[in-house]
């Protein structure tokens, strides 16, 4: 049994090495004194200092974050309302039709979505830039939010909404006091999914970004085409650390929330334990 345990561990370690090796390689060379990844010539932070003094890069990072925050927020709002609307559709066929339309957007290639947005915007005579990127990010995030929120709505017992009306709630009160608090985990999950999709989208953004406005993925791509620049390595390292912190933070929060709930229940059970 011990040998088996070791073997499976070994496999796991191997998989993780394969996945993380390129990232580790990239991080390693971000500290290189030289300008290329051919040879490690010595430790230095010079690529980080160039990065921090590169105002164009910093403004692009800010652009990317603003687009991600705004688009995921609006997509969550629209997607949640959409999911609620889909849920209250009476006819099964109508429900399935709307869901299929929603899911087609999820599976269709980004390139096609991006190209169609480009055609659409130029047809309308819409100037490409911040707004066009924001709108298309909202558009491709909505189906993600719907997919994350809808199961939570379906899980919610129908009688709970009946109970809200029964106790005197208006439609709005039932929504704000019962339905929304119950599906909050799904809404949050949808928001974070939309946020990450927007952050790392390349294909759609590539089509609708136009001149003068750029997001991180586009910028890194165009710089990488001109030749290897270790400033990109430094930036990637920083982004990797930020996402690592986000993931760790998420788990800490979840653990904290869970243990607090359990503790509270334990405390309450104390005096009245049967």
């Amino acid at each position: 049994m011990k040998a088996k345990f070791k073997l499976s561990n070994l496999y796991l370690v191997f998989v993780f090495i394969v996945i993380y090796l390129p990232i580790a390689y990239l991080i390693f060379y971000s500290f290189n004194t030289g300008a290329t990844m051919d040879k490690f010539t010595g430790f230095s932070m010079k690529h980080y200092t160039t990065l921090l003094s590169d105002t164009r890069m910093i403004s692009i990072v800010l652009n990317t974050v603003v687009i991600a925050l705004l688009s995921s927020l609006l997509a969550t709002l629209i997607g949640t309302l959409g999911a609620l609307w889909i849920n209250q559709l009476k006819r099964r066929s109508a429900k399935n039709a709307v869901l299929s339309v929603n899911n087609v957007l999820m599976v269709s290639p980004d390139v096609i979505i991006g190209a169609s947005f480009l055609i659409f915007f130029s047809f309308l005579g819409f100037k490409l830039g911040f707004t066009s990127v924001l709108l298309s990010h909202i558009a491709f995030s909505i189906p993600i939010v719907v997919l994350m929120v809808l199961p939570k709505i379906n899980e919610m017992p129908r009688t709970m909404i009946d109970a809200a009306y029964d106790l005197g709630a208006s439609k709005w009160q039932a929504l704000s006091r019962v339905i929304l608090p119950t599906i909050t985990p799904g809404i949050f999950a949808g928001y974070f999914m939309a946020f990450t999709y927007s952050l790392d989208d390349f294909a759609v953004t590539f089509f609708v970004t136009g001149n003068g406005f750029s997001t991180l993925s586009i910028e890194i791509y165009s710089r990488a085409r001109q030749g290897v620049d270790l400033e990109v390595n430094a930036l990637s390292t920083l982004m990797f650390l930020v996402s690592l912190l986000l993931v760790v933070g998420y788990y800490v929060l979840e653990r904290y929330g869970h243990s607090r709930r359990v503790n509270r229940n334990k405390m309450m059970k104390g005096p009245n334990a049967q």
Binding site: P157, T159, M160, D162, A163, A164, Y165, D166, L167, G168, A169, S170, V178, P181, T182, T184
Partner: peptide
């Protein structure tokens, strides 16, 4: 008259308590 305006209350089979 809609349900929320009736002086009638219901106890549901699955209790329908609000878990939040």
């Amino acid at each position: 008259t809609p349900a929320n305006k009736r002086p009638i209350n219901t106890i549901f089979q699955d209790y329908a308590l609000f878990p939040h």
